[in-house]
């Protein structure tokens, strides 16, 4: 079986690089933590890898808007490499700060029909509460999405840990377009309601929606389904013992052979298996 090579970016305040590297290894990938400058200087090359992960953190302290400065470094110094990576059908994930970076570079949600043009079309801004918070949310996945990362997922619990996670777009039309394209991959939902009842686009009350995101958007993918970003942290529920209900006997079980596996791991396995299926 082919072992996909995963580049896990770090540097400048990214801080979920260790666990992000670890979860890919748990599902059969080979992770390397790569400093962004190694790609920019040419010491290492993005094309050496099959998967790119931009982990969570506080790149540049979120100053001038979360993800903005990191996004600029990528947009202005790594543009061709990123373009080639996407054109060769390789998946990218951005989690939390990584999602913010991908949105600010313009890779998410990306243009409708063309290859990436690095134009910002959405933003992630300050939570309506005005506060950074760490709390658990429940997420439902879009079963009609073509996103390779979320295949087969329906509902999971995982933590959000951000101060700027409110997804916004400049007008109703672009939001509607995003929905019609099935690019709204994952949304905050009320765990008390079954999945079919969660099609409501009205913003859920705090804390069901931790940030006031438009249409309760927690994560989106690009048109190809290869680039995926989300504010919540699926890597933080790689094991059931990390679930807050674990001591109550209430942590959701895994459907895989790994008995202790938590619900978040499948996202990373999906990408690894996707690469394996193309080799």
């Amino acid at each position: 079986m082919y072992t996909p090579k995963v580049a896990v970016l770090f540097g400048f305040g990214i801080n979920c690089d260790h666990e992000t590297a670890a979860v890919f290894e748990m599902v059969g990938g080979k992770s390397t933590r790569v400093h962004l400058n190694s790609f920019i200087s040419g010491e290492d090359e993005l094309s050496n890898y099959d998967i790119l992960a931009v982990p969570g953190g506080f790149s540049f302290g979120d100053h001038l808007g979360s993800g903005r400065l990191m996004g600029n470094r990528m947009r202005f110094s790594l543009r061709d490499e990123l373009l080639n990576f996407i054109k060769s059908g390789k998946p990218i994930i951005g989690i939390c700060n990584g999602f913010q970076v991908l949105v600010k570079t313009g890779l998410l949600p990306g243009p409708d029909n063309n290859e990436p043009d690095f134009i910002q079309r959405a933003s992630l801004t300050l939570n309506d509460s005005g506060r950074y918070e760490d709390r658990w949310v429940t997420l439902d996945f879009n079963k009609d999405s073509n996103c390779i990362w979320t295949k087969g997922l329906t509902r999971i619990d995982c933590p959000v840990r951000h101060g700027e996670g409110k997804y916004v777009m400049p007008d109703a039309e672009s939001l509607a377009n995003l929905a019609n394209n099935n690019q709204i991959t994952v949304r905050y939902v009320d765990p008390q309601k079954p999945q079919s009842d969660n099609s409501n686009d009205d913003v859920l009350p705090f804390p069901l929606s931790p940030n006031g995101s438009m249409m309760n958007i927690a994560g989106i993918s690009d048109k190809t389904g290869l680039v995926f970003g989300l504010m919540p942290h699926p890597e933080a529920i790689y094991a059931q013992w990390l679930h807050p209900d674990f001591s109550r006997g209430g942590a959701p079980a895994s459907t895989t052979d790994i008995q202790w596996e938590g619900q978040g791991l499948q996202i990373f396995r999906n990408a690894v298996e996707y690469i394996q299926s193309t080799h």
Binding site: H18, E19, P159, H233
Partner: peptide, 14 residues
Amino acid sequence: RQYDHEVIAQTAVK
């Protein structure tokens, strides 16, 4: 709750 108590994906009792 305004402190990140789960980064590094290791916190079992929060």
